[in-house]
């Protein structure tokens, strides 16, 4: 401890001072609730009768493993993540590239692509619920122009989740587009000018300059889209309430249903904790894998003299 130089001490102090507001607000409004939630998950806390709460150990967690609806919620959430994350990120990137360059009217299109985000998920979900209707819904009216018979969409167990996926990709792409755009501002202009001298075509510039330059932003966007997709809730609540027959129930919706609607706080908290735990484990695993790769590289460098 004594070995810390005066300079490092100053840096530590500065760093913590910059972190201070975040630490204060983060502790009070995030960490304290999480710890409380953690404690609740080992109790039978029933919202309507808090005074009779007892510790029940791992009972809530054990119950979860035999809860068929919870299983369904996990499968649905995974399906949502697998479909939405790649599509949404790719669409967002394409949109950002389309409106990145300065050209006449690009502001209008930027607005158009961002419109669903501005309209907010609540409203968009409400509108799509109407669009998806079997009778009189826009999608079925369009299909009928091509002679396709009316589809159930949200009222069909097989299609409902995919319908929600489609709407989500479309609604959320503008959000990620904005972040991509902020990232694209940072791509150095000199690089493009140099490429112009080499007479590189647009595709080469995209692949060799733009994409590598925004790789960190891309990583960021993928992570937040992934996290957002795991937490899918609003659209389910508004469009289907988890139905038909639980075919669109997701983990966070189930947390809400159990913990808030059915007042079973203990059980709901247990789901939240398990959900977080799985994510922590996954990121540790990823960290571990990265470390492993690093070690292996160093080992190779030392033993094989590096390539």
């Amino acid at each position: 401890m004594n070995k810390v130089s005066a300079r490092q001490k100053r840096i530590n102090f500065t760093g913590w001072m910059f972190m201070l507001p975040a630490l204060v607000f983060g502790t009070v409004f995030l960490i304290v609730p999480i710890v409380m939630c953690f404690v609740f998950s080992f109790t039978d806390f029933y919202m309507l009768r808090p005074e009779s709460t007892l510790f029940v150990g791992f009972e809530n967690y054990v119950d979860l493993f035999s809860d068929a609806i919870f299983g369904k919620a996990i499968t649905n959430t995974l399906l949502f993540v697998v479909v939405v994350v790649p599509l949404q990120c790719l669409l967002a990137l394409v949109l950002a590239l389309l409106v990145n360059k300065r050209w006449r009217g690009c502001g209008v299109f930027k607005l158009a692509y961002f419109a669903p985000v501005i309209t907010s998920m609540t409203v968009v979900a409400l509108l799509f619920q109407i669009f998806y209707q079997r009778d009189g819904g826009i999608f079925n009216l369009l299909l009928s122009l091509f002679g396709v018979e009316a589809q159930g969409f949200l009222q069909d167990e097989g299609q409902a989740m995919l319908c929600i996926c489609f709407m989500s990709v479309w609604q959320g792409a503008g959000y990620q587009m904005i972040i991509f755009l902020a990232g694209l501002q940072g791509v150095s202009r000199e690089l493009y000018e140099a490429a112009d001298i080499d007479a590189a075509n647009a595709w080469d510039k995209l692949v060799h300059i733009t994409l590598p330059s925004i790789a960190p932003v891309t990583g960021f966007v993928v992570i937040i889209t992934l996290v957002g997709a795991f937490k899918v809730f609003t659209q389910v609540q508004i469009m289907t309430n988890g139905g038909p027959n639980n075919s669109t129930i997701t983990v966070v919706y189930y947390i809400f249903q159990k913990g808030m609607s059915e007042q079973l706080v203990g059980y709901g908290s247990a789901i939240s904790m398990l959900f977080t735990l799985v994510f922590v484990a996954a990121s540790l695993l990823r960290g571990g894998a990265a470390k492993g790769v690093g070690l292996y590289r160093r080992y190779r460098e030392r033993v094989l003299g590096g390539y």
Binding site: I11, T14, L30, V32, F233, F256, F275
Partner: peptide, 28 residues
């Protein structure tokens, strides 16, 4: 700023991203 604890806090924050608001509503 390369202060002590930088990495730990950063990792912690990334992990906390996953906490669903609906899960901590009552506690909050």
């Amino acid at each position: 700023i390369n202060f002590r604890g930088n990495r730990v806090i950063y990792n912690f924050i990334v992990i906390m991203l996953i906490i669903p608001f609906e899960g901590i509503t009552l506690a909050l």
